[in-house]
């Protein structure tokens, strides 16, 4: 036995905030490398949003009346932003369920690393991916006629708001991924949650055209709030932008406060 190892081990077992950050970055790097090698994940983050833009801009868009300055394309793109990052969050649940299935989580749990590292690394990687997705949508949006009508600062504030919301959402999908038996189940559990949140929202169609019973949900659910805030910040034409921004921030912070500890708890106790 190498007895010298014991005091060293005691010293090394201390998890400082700096350690937690380092572990997070190592895991985030791993997930980002992984992403570039999974064709499905790349498809989800690139081809899919482009398809949605083209579909709603050219197929459905003509039939949807909006009062926005700049017409439907300006109404649409802020919605596409939020819808895409919300769909992207499913990758968090699928990825974590896969890590569990393959025993990788067991290995991480047996390492002297921060307990939050695996989940924080995964969500930070998602955040990085979402930054790229935001650039992509901006580019595609401009190509199909979207124009920022407010200011660069308004646009940047909107993107920041969307990224914050997406980050909180990732923790929610982490909880789903850690609760699912396998990656297929994780996917099946995620979509029934995502569809109402993204489509029964102000993303593609103004809420006032929906039946009354749906409006109550569609108008006040968090995705709509974030979309309305982002739309107001990017293209204007939204009443009480500050109010929507405020509600969006409350949702983002609130979800994070509830979901992050829940996810870490799931990670630690998953048997």
């Amino acid at each position: 036995m190498r007895t010298a190892a014991i005091p060293v081990a005691e010293r090394r077992s201390r998890i400082t905030p700096l350690r937690a950050v380092k572990d997070t970055l190592v895991i985030a790097e791993r997930n980002l490398i992984s992403y570039t090698r999974i064709p499905e994940a790349l498809f989800f983050s690139s081809v899919q949003p482009i398809m949605f833009v083209l579909l709603f801009r050219y197929v459905f868009g003509g039939a949807i009346r909006v009062a926005d300055p700049g017409g439907y394309v300006n109404y649409l793109i802020p919605g596409i932003f939020v819808q895409t990052v919300a769909f992207g969050a499913v990758q968090t649940s699928i990825g974590l369920a896969e890590d569990l299935q393959k025993g990788l989580i067991e290995r991480f749990r047996s390492l002297p690393m921060a307990r939050s590292g695996v989940l924080a690394g995964r969500t930070v990687a998602d955040l990085c991916r979402n930054v790229l997705v935001a650039c992509l949508i901006t580019g595609v949006g401009y190509a199909v006629g979207f124009r920022v009508e407010t200011s660069v600062w308004g646009y940047l504030a909107a993107v920041l708001l969307i990224l914050m919301f997406a980050y909180s959402l990732s923790w929610g999908f982490a909880v789903i991924g850690l609760s699912a038996a396998n990656s297929e189940t994780a996917q099946v559990m995620s979509f029934p949650l995502l569809f109402p949140l993204t489509f029964a929202s102000s993303a593609f169609v103004p809420v006032q055209y929906m039946p009354g019973w749906l409006q109550g949900f569609a108008k006040y659910q968090p995705v709509s709030e974030v979309i309305d805030a982002a739309r107001g910040l990017m293209v204007g034409g939204v009443a009480d932008v500050a109010g929507h921004v405020e509600v969006s921030l409350v949702w983002s912070v609130g979800l994070l406060i509830v979901l992050a500890p829940l996810a870490v708890h799931k990670y630690r106790t998953r048997t």
Partner: peptide, 14 residues
Amino acid sequence: VVRALIGLAGQYAA
């Protein structure tokens, strides 16, 4: 401390 002292390899090749 225990985690800093052990290595684990398993049937799943994690």
